[in-house]
């Protein structure tokens, strides 16, 4: 069983996301430690990309700040190594980034390092099912799950995408990009049911979720809830003092979906 599957073994999973390097990698590392303490089941580490097509303004701006502050793929790898070796982070972790970050590093070189340093999966929102082979073969070789995404517009693609999925399935809650939404209008129960009919791989819902109430509602249909922009906003607001606030927030979300 993959490490990621373990994240979904103890009830509903809460999956927080953080943009690495905003405002600096030391703060990111401390936030990750607090996320684990607060009960996160799986943590998504965003490697910043200059042109993140799937992101709304909050994560896009955080990515650009991180890049301006000198964050690079190699520095993120070093942070991951520190999390695993010095900071006792044992919770499963996945990278979320864009195709070119992995491709330009060398897919093999990237996956080898990720695997050695203790990364369990990779989410590439700009690599749909049709383009995944180039990445997935190498990911599998290194024991890394390439996470599949399913959107409200996937319709008849659901069974195709879900049947080849490993790790977990990332269900995109709404049309559009990442970011806090006051209302999610997609028929989430039907979408989750369609996914579950096609696979036994656990599914987690993300995009637009920020409040404990929304999280609880989503967790009723899925195996887990993913929150990104709301956390990145906290980091943007508190900067180097963010870890404590991030921890509190994650705790409130973990409690809400129990």
């Amino acid at each position: 069983m993959s490490n990621i599957a373990k994240a979904f073994e103890n009830g509903k999973a809460f999956v927080p996301f953080i943009t690495c390097g905003d405002p600096d990698l030391d703060t990111t590392a401390r936030c990750v430690v607090e996320m684990q303490k607060a009960g996160a089941s799986l943590i998504e580490l965003g490697i910043p990309f200059s042109d993140p097509t799937a992101e709304g303004p909050v994560i896009m701006e955080a990515s650009l700040r991180a890049l301006e502050n000198g964050c690079t793929t190699d520095k993120v790898f070093e942070m991951v190594k520190r999390l695993r070796t010095e900071l006792n982070v044992t919770v499963p972790m996945v990278f979320m980034t864009y195709a070119n970050v992995v491709f330009s590093y060398g897919i093999e070189r990237f996956c080898k390092k990720a695997s050695e340093y203790g990364i369990d999966g990779i989410i590439l929102p700009d690599v749909p099912y049709e383009e995944k082979d180039e990445f997935d073969g190498i990911c599998k070789q290194y024991g890394i799950d390439l996470i599949s995404l399913i959107a409200p517009t996937s319709d008849e693609r659901i069974s195709m995408v879900a049947s080849s999925a490993t790790g977990f399935i990332y269900i995109v809650s709404s049309l559009g990009v990442t970011g806090v939404r006051s209302q999610i209008t997609t028929d989430i129960p039907s979408l989750c049911a369609a996914v579950k009919a096609a696979t036994d791989v656990p599914c987690a819902i993300g995009f637009g979720i920020s409040t404990p109430e929304q999280a609880a509602k989503m967790a009723a249909s899925a195996d887990g809830v993913i929150v990104g922009s709301a956390i990145v906003k906290i980091v943007a607001r508190y900067g180097k003092d963010a870890p404590e606030h991030v921890g509190e927030y994650v705790k409130s979300m973990v409690d809400a979906i129990k």
């Binding site: 049709e130 995404l149 517009t153 995109v172």
Partner: peptide, 21 residues
């Protein structure tokens, strides 16, 4: 058929847009 010109081309976009293209 996959929209490739040699090794170039393809469809590197979010799943949300796949049915649209």
């Amino acid at each position: 058929s996959k929209g490739r010109f040699g090794i170039h081309g393809g469809q590197y976009i979010p799943e949300t847009l796949m049915n649209a293209v």
